[in-house]
Design a binder for these strands. Structure first.
Lengths: 208, 208, 208, 208
DNA sequence: TATGAATGAGTGTTCATTCAT
DNA sequence: CATGAATGAACACTCATTCAT
């Protein structure tokens, strides 16, 4: 439909340029979080970032290209957060590990419902399959490593499938229980953990 | 923020007025499905519905009010679809029942990723808590009735929790596998069924 | 410019029709008083009057025709108010008479700044010269009668001129001191009386 | 009611920006003068000014803000015109001075009835008390200086009152006689001069 | 006659994008 | 390279007016 490129117009070479791109991405994320898609106008982003609108267009050929960059960063953030969590739980058992991963996801999504659903909608609209595929590949690798530790407890799983299903599962449960009072967050965590453990079929093996 | 009402401006009294409101809602849904939030402009909706823009504003005081009506219809649709499916599977066992419910959800969501995420984002932005609460209550009642049939096979569940968690769970898995080739739809169905059955702890009882 | 007639579409013959026209004029005046020109939409007038928009257009061919009717009523009201006041002050001396007339004008204009300026602006825009000429003629006759009572105290005046100048003079002073606290209304009255008496040259004769 | 700011959105920094703002204000005044409030649409203003509608909104956050700017200019214009006239009549006697001031006001108002009543109506609707107060203060100072020259001829006056009453008085008389044929303009001038001199009580002193 | 659903040109306003400086 | 003034298509929404019922 639109023939305009969605890739950044040029890679920032100088340090100052890197900082500019960083400021733009940060500003866009803030605006998205605070007031949703409608608030992320290119002029507002430039103003919040402290750069001129002209500069923004130096680095991003159009609004969608900026959006794609945000999606890229969000995806990378997901992977890194999981990678970090996995380091922390190398000694833990399966349930504790799952609980820790769920808690990490919750900490990120709670009160960010607007940002999350905004990015979701733009993911559905923009051609970002390649970016998501990359995330899935990296996530799959991480999960494969994790599953190998618990291969005796969980059912027979296809890591490629699980890498796609599990994050969605966690996110949806967290979202569904999102804007709750602090006192009920434990319920959300419990539900998510139960869903994940259930999906992992830990009881099926026991039953066999 | 905005003090404008989000309730319909007036109820259609004459028959042709009912048809007008219906056409508007249909047109809005179509546009959302085809090109996302940005395509659902009030003028485009009126044009697609074959009515004048003035007529749209006779019944909806603003764009958000129309959006709220779409959310209301979507929620009601979810409930009715589940209610219908439950009638069809009164004789089936648990796994078959779950599979049928999942299939119903898939039929609706496949290729509707844009519509779904659009409505999601607007739900996060608009004050529709009351509408969602009503859906949860009705859905909870339906599930409670369903669970009673399988009380010997599933783990101990809080129906109020399950009414919130289960639909989110199905939807997210379906969404995550949404824009796939026909050949892989079976995978999506398999994943969703496994997630639901896992959440329902059917294997835990076997293990006991 | 616009060739549409500004005269009422038809004289109301039945009693019910008279009541309808009356209700419409009342409603329009209320809306003008409350929120100015922008609030006097034909639909709002019909709703406030409790008649359908179709009925409004039965009696007034367009919005300007309604506006002209309001101007006509306002002008007639001015004349009648002066006529009534003159009856009350047949025994009073000049200054007391002027004060009474000023007070009548003030009672009418205070807190009606929006209505007054709205009608003013429409008078400037619409072809209502004939209506205003009629008012001036009637007002001139009244003043001539009044002046004859005080012919020994006031300077040589052309009643035709005075009929145009004096009302404007009173109104402007009242307007200029309009939205004042109750405590300062006396000041406004004093200023208006002084202006009128000054214009009437009562001191010139004394000086002669 | 409306919380939107009525102050200019940003001060023009570059020279061409100053020209843009000036062109917008000029165009708005022209349209008001020619066809009244209804003609002063933002799009018409931009077109007449020869700038894009976007440029108008760079400098004025909304239509009312532009209107406020026009009121500000009108008020400032009144003051400056009086100030200029006062310089010209430093040698003249009281009646000649008044006549000159009245003539200045007439030159401005004649054939501008639409502009004047439009601004009047908007002054009644918009929160411009501060602007008007400033005008009154400056005008009062000018009058005080003028009165001191004629303190022996005029009655005892409160300059603060006179600063409010006198301009209103002149304006209303001029307005009342506004759309007259050239031949009758002398009448209007005569009436206004008589009203002002009368208000100033010049004959009262003679009578004492 | 009275009704009110329907109309659509026209309003105020926004915002992605360009380009002269 | 950076700036920010300028652009104008497109948006949400209004309202005088018509006309089938």
């Amino acid at each position: 439909m639109s023939s305009a490129s969605l890739t950044p117009r040029k890679a920032p070479r100088q340090a100052r340029a890197v900082a500019t791109v960083e400021a733009i991405a940060q500003a866009a994320t803030q605006l998205l979080r605070e007031n949703g898609l409608a608030a992320m106008t290119t002029n507002a982003v430039a103003a919040r970032a402290g750069v001129s609108i002209g500069s923004l267009y130096q680095y991003f050929p159009n609004r969608d290209a900026l959006m794609v960059e945000l999606i890229r960063r969000e995806q990378r953030g997901h992977v890194e957060r999981v990678r970090a969590a996995l380091v922390l739980c190398e000694e833990l058992d399966l349930e504790a590990t799952v609980r820790l991963l769920v808690r990490a996801a919750m900490g990120h999504h709670r009160a960010d419902a607007l940002l999350a659903s905004a990015i979701d909608h733009e993911e559905a609209r923009l051609p970002v399959d390649a970016i998501i595929a990359e995330t899935l590949a990296e996530g799959g690798a991480l999960l494969m490593h994790l599953f190998s530790r618990f291969r005796d407890e969980i059912g027979p799983l296809d890591p490629a499938r699980a890498a796609r299903t599990l994050p969605a599962l966690v996110r949806s449960v967290v979202d569904a229980w999102a804007n709750l009072a602090q006192s009920e967050l434990e319920v959300a965590e419990e539900e998510a953990v139960q869903a994940v453990l259930g999906y992992l079929c830990i009881y099926r093996r026991l039953a066999a």
